[in-house]
Design a protein around this nucleic acid. Structure first.
Lengths: 350, 350
DNA sequence: CTGAAAGCGCTAACAT
DNA sequence: ATGTTAGCGCTTTCAG
């Protein structure tokens, strides 16, 4: 293995000079820098990560904790993870993959051992058990998602409430007066995953303001579960002319069932989804939808973390990352083929 | 930060004793071990990862390279990644997440810097550009997937050829004589991703042996693409009574289109899939399918890697991991609701 | 602008 | 069974 000392000897300089060429932490004359660079190149030198971490107390590693349970928003999770890794690299960091399984102790472990100098948490619950660890003099952290009490924490998420409102608004503008919401599976609500409840709040609030009727039903994924829920909805509210879906695995079953029961989309009923953009675009009827901005979420999480770490170093630049706090990304609704005006009142159908 | 030296002082022993209590690399008397353990506990000591890596030249980190492009088998990819992380932890390793983006250089980087001591590569292409790095005195590595020439490499994958054969066999046993294959998107074949071609080979070979007609068509995901392919298939081969699908995003569109064109599944046509188990189970008609054993793949990859690393250490145990080479997991076909006997010859329908 | 040298915290001979 | 000690490779004072 090539060491810094060998590079130094080869270049005819001291070890510290090589180090400073690498870090740029002090001015090095042009010629020396050239020679050192050449030696590094020739010898194929690569700094030893462990030695660096030991001497500098900075591992340049960010831990990313993904949920163990992969039952929800799976493509989105992967996309966020990949965006985190990519963005982290762009800032000189590597990413350590942790699963939710180990829970809070994993955070203590990677953080206490100096393995990771910061963490990003995905799939945050309203009263997440990992949060106490973070508040108690924890490491720099950014949550993707919003806990019940985000005080003192750094969070990035889609503004799901606004997303819900946006869906209602879109449907209201088309003339719909009665909407049904096919929600996440009951388990998601039971776990108090914030985004589901926030979406619902946004839906309800805007529906209330615009005077629409709104019916919400949690729903498991899969064809049979959706069939049951759908039947109950039409039973309770025959006047429903539009659906908002927030469960990727319910999307296709819903479309299939509507088709089978002779309801054309969007002629007879409209459907709007809050889900991964790809899912919406590739559905058997391209769905008008609010996409989860997975890449953006991953990217922002890293950027905020890196800004925070720089701040620690005394990089008092006022620009990067607008400081800690909650950052909610504004939702965008993409209109595709699944939403249109409601059918004319029954009996008047042409 | 609590150091090993402090623990040693607190316990009234030398630093090496503490180290050995931790590593178990030499016998320590019961009493001393107790005292050291107690001190560790009380002081909340955590070994410094960097210092350890430096002194021992073992980082206890495995790099996992996932494809950047997330267009295929996405849930499976995440499931593998999570299984890798979980299994690695069970063996005392952590996992570094790399994206395909950086390519071969990422391998050199994490490996040359001692950051990771071994790597797992996912989504391996037939002539993967990362392989030369591995063969050339590279780090211990396991591929999830099969390259064109696996010589000298350690690989784990589903036996896709056997999976294809299994599908044909199942359909043949039901009485089908003419089968169509909805393949992966053309891009996948163009990239020479091995599994798609191996599946096809298995399908063809078994179909040939059993005297079935087989028609293969690559297919993009999404409703429109599937519609086009399906139309062409029925045009060319009106006698087709069964489909094998190997593209998760084509599954629901296919089912929807069959339904719409008045073909009942499985009464009129059978459908068998090679895809994630969850997708098959949750489809609008529960699909008979060969599942991709994601967890098993991730688990085996780590186990083989760890076995290899132990072998390096001189752990000449004959058991663990059956040595390097190619390990193909046997496929399992789960019969669900989408496959049955073909309809009686036309004109005889009841 | 550059060098010398003292650690960073841990492991693993080498002792006893 | 335990202690002593010499590094592992790098960063960062302290000195010029």
């Amino acid at each position: 293995m090539v060491t810094l000392a060998e590079v130094a000897r080869h270049a005819g300089v001291s070890a510290s000079t090589v180090s400073y060429v690498l870090s740029g932490k002090r001015p090095i004359s042009g010629p020396t820098r050239q020679r050192v660079r050449a030696s590094i190149e020739q010898l194929g030198y690569q700094p030893h990560a462990g030695a660096r971490a030991l001497a500098s107390s900075r591992s340049r590693i960010i831990a990313l904790m993904v949920p163990l349970r992969t039952d929800m928003y799976v493509p989105v999770m992967l996309e966020i993870a990949v965006a985190v890794a990519t963005t982290a690299r762009a800032h000189g960091y590597d990413v350590l993959l942790l699963t939710g399984e180990e829970g809070p102790s994993a955070l203590r472990r990677v953080t206490g051992s100096g393995l990771a100098e910061a963490v990003i948490l995905m799939d945050v619950q309203l009263d997440d058990e990992r949060l106490p660890v973070l508040r108690a003099a924890g490491p720099p952290a950014v949550l993707v998602g919003l806990p019940g009490d985000p005080a003192g924490l750094d969070c990035v998420d889609l503004d799901f409430a606004a997303a819900g409102a946006l869906c209602v608004e879109h449907l209201a503008a088309l003339g719909h007066r009665e909407i049904a919401v096919i929600g996440e599976s009951p388990g998601v609500y039971a776990r108090h995953t914030g985004f589901a409840e926030r979406t619902l709040r946004g839906l309800r609030e805007r529906a209330g303001r615009l005077g629409l009727r709104l019916l919400h039903r949690p729903c498991e994924g899969g064809h049979d579960a959706v069939a049951g829920v759908l039947a109950r909805i039409f039973d309770e509210r025959p006047g429903v002319s539009a659906f908002v879906v927030q469960n990727e695995t319910a999307v296709e079953p819903l479309l299939a069932l509507l088709r089978r029961t002779g309801r054309a989309v969007p002629e007879d009923v409209s459907v709007v989804a809050v889900c991964a953009g790809q899912v919406a675009a590739q559905a058997s009827v391209a769905l008008s939808s609010v996409a989860i901005p997975a890449q953006e979420l991953g990217r922002r999480a890293v950027e905020r973390l890196v800004a925070g770490l720089a701040r620690q170093d005394g990089d008092a630049r006022p620009d990067a990352g607008r400081g800690p706090g909650v950052e909610l990304l504004a939702p965008t609704l993409t209109v595709r083929d699944s939403s249109g005006p409601p059918p004319p009142p029954s009996g008047v159908r042409n």
